[in-house]
Write a protein that binds this DNA or RNA. Structure first.
Lengths: 114, 114
DNA sequence: TAAACTTATCGCAATATGGCGATTATTAGA
DNA sequence: TCTAATAATCGCCATATTGCGATAAGTTTA
């Protein structure tokens, strides 16, 4: 039995999420399950590339997959992943507001120099 | 001005977090600010490696840094990062409980075969 | 000023990742 | 059965990442 530490799983999930294409795939699948042939036209990537990305998300237990006839249908396994992404967004918002704060301060100091 | 999209920032934060050493660094710094020379002995990595990892976390706006004399002190900039990690953990816990559920089911089916 | 200390950066090697086209395997339909 | 459709996998290349030791750059202390 291959022993998986919580730390390994952590990194696996976070690595799976740290790619723009895979984040887009999740967003796309947030509307509901889709087969690969429905996903492909929505992305400017080769079939092999999309297949690989889907598999990475599947391996991280973020996506679920079922084979239906000649097609494979993917769907979100754990919707918690969207809470996680929203939390990342809120961190970036903090960063952006800090930037705009800095902008205001800069503005102020410039105008007071006139 | 280099325009940064929210998506880029997302990926930057998630990439910064998708490394075991960096997660350990965050855990280490959760106890409070530390200079690099305090951090080094706690890790089995070269000084240059730790410095690079710290810089990646700094660039992702996860760590803050201040130079005090000949030393550099790092600390957590946005403690939200720990909420984020906890959320990842709760996702892994779902996975682990699913595994143990599977184990129980397997156990049951095996015992009923006797 | 010289020496010691601290930390960032450089240069390089090894490995990982992301991309593609070609191939393979499976299923559905003619 | 032959063909088309679907999707995974393979092999390859380009780039990114991680690691290290060496070096550089700054600060403090002697």
């Amino acid at each position: 039995m291959t022993q998986k530490s919580v730390s390994d799983l952590r990194v696996k999930i976070l690595s799976a999420l740290s790619d723009p294409t895979r984040l887009e795939l999740l967003e796309f699948l947030s509307a509901g399950e889709r087969c690969v042939c429905e996903i492909l036209p929505a992305f400017q990537r080769s079939q092999s590339t999309i297949s690989k990305h889907l598999n990475i998300l599947y391996e991280a237990d973020i996506l679920e997959r079922k084979v239906e006839g000649k097609r494979t249908v993917y769907c979100i396994k754990d919707p918690q992943v969207f809470d996680l992404i929203r939390m990342v967004d809120s961190m970036t918002l903090v960063q952006i507001s800090q930037l705009s704060e800095a902008g205001k301060i800069l503005e102020k100091s410039l105008s007071s120099r006139s």
